[in-house]
């Protein structure tokens, strides 16, 4: 009962925060609220028994996404100068959208109904077969890296493309001198270097964050975690360091060539594991082929390698993107 009440509370908060984001015209407030939105969303996922997703949403949605928004704000504007109200077409589209959804969900199975069809077709097979076929405790990892490993491969390439895109847009093309005034930029992006307490306390956190990231990477088979979360955590550690110490110190710690290399190497590693399986006589991404005597051991090896590839790419991408934004204002 208490979980239900808690869940209702969180969901109501979500709506309130979303409306607050819509109403504010200060972009800085909107960004901070959207960080809070993600954090509540993550708590909500945790209540719904989705530990892996909660961890990912907390790190990526509340952490990295907020930092990127702030980085972009420093380079653009602080105020939303949209005309206040009176837009009819968006209102009609939104209301139409909402009513269609409500029409549909009136026939949806209630939350947690064990007789719902989603729980009775493919899902039980994963829960039943994972111990036997793959033998890792975390079923989410098994599905992510092996049963639906092809999706995850695609996913790694999505972040890879995002990184290439940000670099193509911000990395190498030099901005015009007058595009944003230096004082204006500095005012918006004063880093925390001169605040002694956040600097000391924050810096103490950095090694623990990175360590936790590595734990999440290699413990992902057993508990919640895996490459995406680990990569985002390690990157968050590096980003925190850069925020506290200044961007250039962060680039000394993880130079740009290294993060680009990580990005490409991780994606390449994942694709190569797939091709290696074909060379060993199996199908693409069939890790069982990696060990001809013991297919379960082959699965372990395959999952370890592809999760490593995911972790490398995500770490590299997040750091590269952050630096691309942070460096843009400093010429």
């Amino acid at each position: 009962m208490i979980t239900i009440i808690f869940s209702l509370f969180l969901l109501t908060m979500l709506v309130l925060v979303a409306v607050a984001i819509l109403r504010t015209d200060n972009l800085f407030t909107a960004v901070m609220l959207s960080g809070i939105f993600s954090l509540i969303m993550a708590a909500n996922f945790f209540v719904l028994d989705a530990a892996d997703v909660a961890l990912t949403e907390a790190v990526i949605g509340a952490g990295i996404s907020t930092v990127l928004f702030l980085g972009a704000l420093a380079l653009t504007a602080e105020k939303d100068r949209s005309p206040p109200v009176g837009s009819v077409v968006p209102l009609i589209s939104a209301v139409a959208l909402g009513s269609v959804i409500i029409y549909a969900v009136m026939q949806a199975p209630r939350l947690g109904d064990p007789k719902a069809v989603v729980h009775n077709h493919v899902a039980p097979w994963y829960l039943e077969k994972t111990p036997e076929l793959i033998d890792v405790p975390n079923v989410v990892t098994a599905v992510l890296a092996s049963f639906r490993g092809y999706d995850t491969l695609g996913e790694v390439f999505v972040v890879f493309i995002a990184c290439m895109g940000v670099m193509a847009l911000l990395g190498r093309v030099r901005p015009r001198k007058d595009s944003i005034k230096l004082t204006e930029y500095e005012e918006r992006s004063r880093n925390l270097r001169h605040h002694l307490i956040p600097r000391i306390v924050g810096k103490m956190l950095v090694p623990f964050i990175v360590l936790f990231g590595l734990y999440v990477q290699f413990h992902g088979d057993f508990g919640p975690g895996g490459g995406f979360q680990a990569g985002a955590l390690v990157a968050a550690g590096v980003i925190l360091y850069s925020l506290l110490e200044g961007d250039w110190r962060g680039r000394e710690l993880v130079p740009e060539w290294f993060s680009s290399l990580l990005v490409a190497a991780g994606a390449f590693l994942y694709a190569s594991v797939g091709v290696a399986c074909m060379v060993m006589g199996g199908r693409f991404l069939d890790y069982s082929a990696l060990d001809s005597h013991d297919p379960v051991h082959g699965q372990h090896l395959g999952i370890l390698l592809v999760e490593l590839g995911v972790g490398m790419t995500v770490t590299g991408v997040m750091i590269t993107i952050f630096h691309a934004f942070a460096r843009r204002g400093v010429r």
Binding site: F69, A72, L169
Partner: peptide
Amino acid sequence: PLPQVLILTAIVVGISTTALGLAVAVRIRE
């Protein structure tokens, strides 16, 4: 476990789109 896997994927798609959109926004401002 299946919806969780799908959403792990979708979260990463989301941040990728956001990052690209923000980069375009910065260039538009410039």
